[in-house]
């Protein structure tokens, strides 16, 4: 069962959790803005709230400011305006509890995968050298790289590099994982593995903030999402709440399309459309089985009946446009 379905199955209007401060949010930003030298506004007054324990999809076309936002959250880039908080702690204290993949893997080509992880582990002031060997072996094991641990990074394939970057993010106990396009370059098997890894990590209570272009992936993996467009946030919320803004339709396949259209109209369904042997209309919250009963009762030969729920992709396209141009 996917997280999305759990979410939709939750009672509507459930009482919000107590408190509303950063204590409940893994990431909060208020008016976060980055204007690069040269005037390029990469992130524009961003107000994000990533609930603790969520798997939060961060979506947006190329150049919409996702990586820049992540760089600001990690203290790599200073915001021009606004502020943010990670895990409700000062950044230096928060970062040891945050594992991150930013804009793809970057390692020392002449070192082995294992030696690379040792290097980044040494950079963390809270990590203990005595436990490094065990933690590194565990991280490599988790991403399926144990066999290639001793191989030089130079000789890693793209997918192996991506896995090593994820392993580096898992070197310690993390409360928050920030993953910038973690499945870039992975084969379908690797993509599935990352997805299940993310779910496994989230099940341990770790918040996962993951940027992606792959909407189907976000839909399967995330409980929440935010959508960026040219540096601005255009939507955020649970996956279900994002989708609920779009219309759910019913589609009837039948040789008696005219009759079917008439029946649907008589039932009071809006926006009835027919094309060939297919009739669609807005479902508007009705039970599909009642519609089926009505159709059959009127003698319409129903070959198929389906509820067409808008996908995240429809939401995304509606908010960011169909165009193939990059933002910025």
């Amino acid at each position: 069962m996917t997280a999305v379905t759990q979410e939709a199955g939750a009672p509507l209007g459930a009482a919000p959790p107590p408190g509303d401060g950063s204590g409940e949010s893994a990431i909060v930003t208020r008016g976060l803005t980055k204007r690069f030298r040269g005037g390029q506004v990469a992130v524009d007054a961003l107000d994000l709230a990533v609930p603790r324990g969520s798997v939060f999809g961060f979506l947006g076309p190329n150049g919409s400011g996702k990586t820049t936002t992540i760089r600001m959250l990690l203290g790599l880039v200073a915001p021009t305006a606004g502020d943010y908080s990670v895990l409700g702690l000062p950044l230096a204290q928060a970062l040891p509890r945050v594992g991150a993949v930013v804009e793809g893997p970057a390692f020392y080509p002449y070192l082995s995968g294992e030696a690379n992880l040792r290097r980044f582990d040494a950079a963390d002031p809270t990590a203990r050298g005595a436990t490094a060997g065990r933690r590194i072996a565990e991280a490599l094991e988790r991403v399926g790289l144990s066999a290639a641990a001793g191989k030089r990074y130079r000789n890693y394939s793209l997918g192996m590099r991506q896995r090593l970057a994820i392993a580096a993010a898992l070197l310690g106990p993390r409360e928050l994982l920030i993953l910038d396009e973690p499945t870039n370059g992975l084969d379908p098997q690797g993509t599935r593995e990352v997805r299940s890894l993310v779910k496994e990590i989230a099940a341990d209570g770790t918040t996962v903030f993951v940027s992606s272009h792959l909407l189907a992936e976000v839909e399967q993996m995330c409980t929440h999402a935010a959508i960026m467009r040219t540096g601005r946030l255009v939507a955020q919320g649970t996956i279900a709440s994002l989708r609920s803004g779009l219309v759910v339709r019913v589609r009837v396949e039948t040789p008696d399309a005219d009759d079917a259209a008439r029946v649907l109209g008589a039932l009071g369904l809006a926006d009835v459309r027919r094309s060939g042997a297919e009739v669609t209309a807005e479902l508007d919250g009705r039970a599909p089985e009642q519609i089926n009963a009505a159709l059959v009762g009127e003698g319409v030969a129903v070959r198929g009946l389906a509820v067409i729920r808008p996908s995240l992709e429809d939401v995304f396209v509606g908010l960011t446009g169909e165009g193939f141009d990059v933002d910025g």
Partner: peptide
């Protein structure tokens, strides 16, 4: 669709 308050369906 628009800015949906996150706390609405927090789990």
């Amino acid at each position: 669709p628009g800015l949906v308050p996150v706390k609405e369906t927090l789990r």
